[in-house]
Nucleic acid binder design. Structure first.
Lengths: 198, 198
DNA sequence: CTAAGTACCGACCGACCGGTCGGTTTTTCG
DNA sequence: CGAAAAACCGACCGGTCGGTCGGTACTTAG
C-alpha cells in the first residue's frame, strides 16, 4: 500500500535526520546533507516534509513518545514507590544510552531552533514528565518517612537533580569508556537513594 | 592608554556576545546582531576580532577561567574533604546562576560550533575540572569510609552525577521560580551527601 | 600643527541556506 | 495496458551569513 511506504519513508528520513542532527548539530546540518545521506535530492526530501522545522518537531515529538512508552508506561503500574523510582532510573538511562534512540539526545540539546508554537507543545510534554517524576519523588519520600511532613529535600529539587544526572549523560558518555550502562545504573541509583557515600 | 581601551573593548564585546549567544543561541546570532547591540558596524566589530569562532572561543575560555578562579581556587586549600566538596557545590551553583557570568551557560551548551583545534583546548580544561572533582570525591569517600577499599559508588560516577545535577540547572532554572539559589544549594548538597531521603 | 596609528564605517563578495516548481520517472491499481 | 497518483529530480530563487576592504573620522604623541 502507498500509505505504508509513505509512513516508512517519513520514519526513515526522521531516523537519518536525527542521526545527523545529533552528530553535527541541527543548525550545522543542511537539508542537502539530510537528502544526500538518504540518496535523495533536496526536492525529493521536500516531497515528504514541508520544512526543516517540521522534521525537528517530529523528531522531538517522537522522542517524547519514546519516553512515554519506554519509561513512563512500564513504570506506571509498579506498586512500590521505591521500586518504581528504581525502574525509572534504569529505563531512563537505557533510553538515553540507546544508540537507536538518537531522537532523545537531539531533543535534550536543541532548544532554540523550534518556532514558539511547536516548542510549547514539546515543552508541555517535558513538563508532564517533570511532574510525574516530582510526584514519584514525593511518594517515595512518604514511604520512607511517613511521619515527617517535610524532608530536607523537596520533591521538586530531587526531580531536577535526577533529571540533571540522567540528561547530562549524553555530554560525557563514551561507549568505549569504562563507565557503561551496566555500571552506571546501579551507581546512579545508589547516589539518588543514599548519596555518594552509600 | 590605547592598550587598555583595546582590552576593554574586547571584553565588552565578549560580554555582549555572550549575552546574545545565551539568549538566542550561537548559530542564530549573526555578527550583525552582535555589532548592532554594541552600536557598531560589522566592519568595526571585525577590527577587534578575526572571526566569530574566535569570539566563541574567547567566551568559553573565559568561562573556564571563571570556573578556575571562582570555584577551584577558593576551594583548593580547604583542608577537610567534605567541607571542600560542600564549598564546591555552593560555588559552582552560584557561578552557574550568576547573571553576570553568562559565559558559563554558553560554554555548557554550545558544543558543536568550534573548530576542532579550539574545541580540544576547551575540552582539555573541562577534563581537568572533572579530574579535580573525581579526586575530591575519592578523598571525601576515604574520609567517610577509611576502611573499605571501595564503596559502591565510584568517584568517577559520583563526579559525573554531580556535574550533571549542577550543569543541567540552566535548562530549567527560572529566577522568578520558587526554587532559587538559597534553597537549591542546601538541597543539592543534601542529595549528594545522603540521597533524596536525607 | 602634523603625522602616524587606532577605531570605525558601509558597501560589497562569494557561498550557502531553506524552500519552490515544472517536469520526469516510477509505482499502483483497475 | 493505461492512466492516475506518488516519488523524485535539479535548476533556480531570494535572502542571509561570515568575512573583506578601501576609505574616513578620531585620538594621540612629537
Amino acid at each position: 500500500m502507498a500509505r505504508e511506504t509513505l509512513v516508512d519513508s517519513r520514519q526513515e528520513i526522521l531516523r537519518t535526520a536525527a542521526r545527523l542532527f545529533q552528530q553535527r548539530g541541527y543548525d550545522a546540518t543542511s537539508m542537502n546533507d539530510v537528502a544526500a545521506a538518504l540518496k535523495l535530492s533536496k526536492g525529493g526530501l521536500y516531497h515528504h516534509f514541508q520544512s526543516k522545522d517540521e522534521i525537528l518537531f517530529e523528531i522531538m515529538d517522537h522522542a517524547m513518545e519514546i519516553t512515554q512508552e519506554r519509561v513512563i508506561n512500564p513504570v506506571r503500574d509498579i506498586a512500590d514507590a521505591e521500586e518504581r523510582l528504581r525502574a525509572l532510573i534504569r529505563l531512563h538511562i537505557e533510553v538515553v544510552l540507546s544508540p537507536r534512540d538518537r531522537e532523545i539526545t537531539v531533543m535534550l540539546h536543541e532548544n532554540h531552533p523550534l518556532p514558539p508554537a511547536l516548542r510549547k507543545r514539546i515543552n508541555s510534554r517535558k513538563k508532564e514528565y517533570v511532574h510525574f517524576l516530582e510526584n514519584l519523588m514525593a511518594e517515595a519520600q512518604k514511604v520512607r518517612h511517613p511521619h515527617s511532613t517535610k524532608g530536607k529535600v523537596s520533591p521538586r529539587a530531587a526531580a531536577f537533580a535526577l533529571l540533571g544526572m540522567l540528561n547530562w549523560i549524553y555530554q560525557w558518555y563514551k561507549p568505549e569508556g569504562d563507565l557503561q550502562a551496566q555500571n552506571l545504573i546501579p551507581q546512579f541509583t545508589e547516589i539518588i537513594f543514599g548519596g555518594i557515600f552509600a
